[in-house]
Design a protein around this nucleic acid. Structure first.
Length: 593
RNA sequence: GGGGCCGUAGCUCAGUUUGGUUAGAGCACUCGACUGUCACUCGAGAGGUCGCGGGUUCGAGCCCCGUCGGCCCCGCCA
């Protein structure tokens, strides 16, 4: 953006954009008083706008005593208009910590246009001062957003959004909006519901994703679609989960998995370039089965090794309470080998144990080799031959869990991540991307045994596994894929079912009878029957990508007006009760607990 | 639905272990001094429903019960 394009009636330049080259220029600035320093004659004001800070000096001998006195009385966060001349500072008075530190503006005029109360939370913060409590930052969001960090995050968000549009548009994708008022789908997450005034007792739902709409756009021949789509899920929140969030939603026709992943990779490269970060030349692929076996989870952190090892054979046939029951029940004993881990203290191991228990597994079996001698509860029951199966070198620590993979895998993933942190194995500035492919079609409910869709019910089965749908559907793989970075899922997608007969069969396996399928997804089925091209797509979590590239630790820091962990908006005060008359119009009565 | 941490001045915190005089500090704020600061400096002042309610006690910021709010995690998030 050119300098002059930002010039307006009230200003000629941006504060934070002034440099030595502007010396001698007469400027008019508008901004917020960041800090003022009154030296008892000479007054300095750090003036802030979107571009940053610049020092404005008020010298009574040149600007007049009145003007200096007025400047001295300015409160923080007051909005002022300043006229003056940019002057290069003498060498001794430069401030290397400021982008504008080689110049200052010598004021000739000052107008207070936006008087401000003393801010409820500080915007200008001392170098060692803590941030205000997050509750207050959310309540006074307009002030918090003035801070440099959040300004940068939202600027980055904007750039990533525009880069997404440019990349996809250049690749022939059409940006098409889909409805916000949609049909409730009792599948998956809880919907946010919106009552209909004109249809008593009926409700819209806010979309959890534009999934069905984008498939219908393929049916309609739009070929390549994208949308930076707002999605809504009424589930409990986390630091990386908000009730309304934004995803980059993509769908394309006449392509296979490789076409989608190639396009998605291109987008990711563009976004990471925009965020001044890097993507390796190729993104490795790993099957779901491989990921689960080697890392216990479908989003492995590949920045370091320490893969899971199956040591069941060391314990098979040994009477040992920790492992016997699990092995008898067709479970396994798996764990990680921590090179040099024998130095971890009892306290540290107890902390790791607490992580394991919070992940739903029983405690860890700890074995270490010190001076050639195996130590730990298992040492007594393992002879040399068995002990050698653990492959522990001197100074190594083995951490093991016994039980069903479903439980031990995710727990060992947590252990692996925690230990990697403790042992300093996580390299900085490394982006370990990976595609995880060949997800299973279904997962079985551990209690009822009923099948549920792993991705969603429109996901196409792997061509090699279609037969399995009749014989052992829980073994069937899907044409589904996730993109993972450093243990975080960035996005996922699939090739969709384009044959209505296959779709009907999948609904059958999921226990959705024909009538229910028609009631819930009739408009999709009707679309498929009208002639659907082979199609598939992917969706990326845009907030999460922005968070990662911004180096933020919470989604709240890359969203202008986020919700709290109880889905409240503290700034505007939503949700809130509504007048009885409004409820009556909506045919709603509220039960009070 | 469950677990953990937190709540004291406008903001950040100390004080809670072991209940006891008038609850402190830094920043911000108000007033005063200061002409090259840039987290300006110096002096003075004002500022408190110790989240809220109840209980125990001669006495509660501190102990007990409940409740509200925020954060983190499990469940949940096709």
């Amino acid at each position: 953006m050119s300098e002059s394009a930002l010039a307006t009636t009230h200003r000629s330049h941006l504060c934070g954009a002034l440099r030595a080259e502007h010396a001698g220029t007469h400027v008019r600035l508008g901004g917020w008083v960041h800090r003022a320093r009154d030296l008892g004659g000479l007054v300095f004001v750090d003036l802030r706008d979107r571009a940053g800070l610049v020092q404005v000096s008020f010298d009574p001998s040149s600007a007049g005593a009145m003007l200096a006195a007025q400047a001295a009385s300015l409160g923080a966060e007051t909005v002022i208009l300043v006229e003056g001349v940019v002057a290069e500072r003498p060498a001794a008075m430069r401030n290397a910590d400021m982008a504008t530190g080689s110049v200052e503006v010598r004021a000739t005029a000052l107008r207070i246009v936006g008087p401000a109360e003393t801010p409820a939370i500080p915007v200008a913060r001392g170098k060692s001062e803590q941030l205000a409590a997050e509750e207050l930052r959310l309540r006074h969001r307009h002030l918090d957003l003035r801070r440099d960090e959040l300004q940068h995050n939202l600027v980055l968000r904007h750039r990533l959004m525009q880069r997404t549009r440019r990349y996809l548009s250049d690749a022939g994708f059409l940006e098409i909006e889909t409805p916000i008022l949609t049909k409730p789908t009792p599948e998956g997450a809880r919907d946010y519901l919106v009552p209909s005034r004109v249809h008593p007792g009926e409700f819209y739902a806010l979309p959890q994703s534009p999934q069905i709409y984008k498939q219908l756009l393929m049916v309609s021949g739009f070929d390549r679609y994208f949308q930076i789509a707002r999605c809504f899920r009424d589930e409990d929140l986390r630091a990386d989960r908000q009730p309304e969030f934004t995803q980059i939603d993509i769908e394309a026709s006449f392509g296979a998995q490789d076409d989608i992943t190639r396009l998605a990779e291109g987008l990711v490269r563009a976004l990471w370039a925009e965020g001044n970060s890097t993507v390796s030349a190729t993104i490795p692929r790993m099957t779901y089965a491989d990921a689960m076996e080697r890392y216990g989870i479908d989003r492995p952190d590949l920045r370091y090794g320490m893969e899971l090892e199956d040591v069941s054979e060391a314990f098979r046939g040994v009477e040992f309470p920790f492992t016997s029951a699990a092995l008898d029940a067709d479970g396994r004993v798996r764990g990680i080998r921590v090179a040099g881990g024998a130095t971890l203290s009892r306290k540290q191991l107890d902390e790791i144990d607490a992580i394991v228990k919070s992940a739903g597994a029983r405690g860890l079996l700890r074995v270490k080799r010190v001076n050639g001698v195996l130590q730990g509860a298992a040492a007594k029951v393992l002879d040399d031959a068995r002990a050698s199966l653990l492959r522990l070198a001197d100074g190594d620590l083995g951490l093991y869990l016994a039980g069903a993979d479903r439980v031990t895998g995710p727990a060992l993933d947590r252990v692996r991540q925690d230990v990697a942190q403790r042992m300093g194995l996580v390299p900085e500035h490394v982006n370990a991307f990976a595609w995880i492919t060949d997800f299973p079609m279904f997962e079985r409910d551990p209690q009822s045994g009923a099948l549920g869709a792993v991705h969603h019910p429109f996901t196409a089965p792997h061509p090699d596994d279609v037969e399995l749908l009749d014989t052992a559907p829980w073994m069937a793989r899907a044409q589904a894929y996730d993109l993972v970075l450093n243990g975080t899922e960035l996005g996922g997608g699939s090739i969709r079912i384009s044959d209505p007969a296959v779709q009907a069969r999948i609904f059958g396996l999921l226990g959705v009878d024909a009538e229910t399928a028609r009631a819930r997804f009739g408009f999709l089925l009707e679309g498929l029957r009208a002639g659907a091209p082979p199609h598939g797509g992917i969706a990326f979590g845009f907030d999460r990508i922005t968070m990662l590239l911004a180096g933020a630790t919470s989604l709240r820091d890359v969203i202008a007006f986020p919700k709290t962990t109880t889905a409240r908006a503290l700034f505007e005060g939503a949700p809130s009760p509504v007048p009885a008359a409004d409820l009556k119009d909506l045919h709603i009565t509220v039960e009070h607990a």
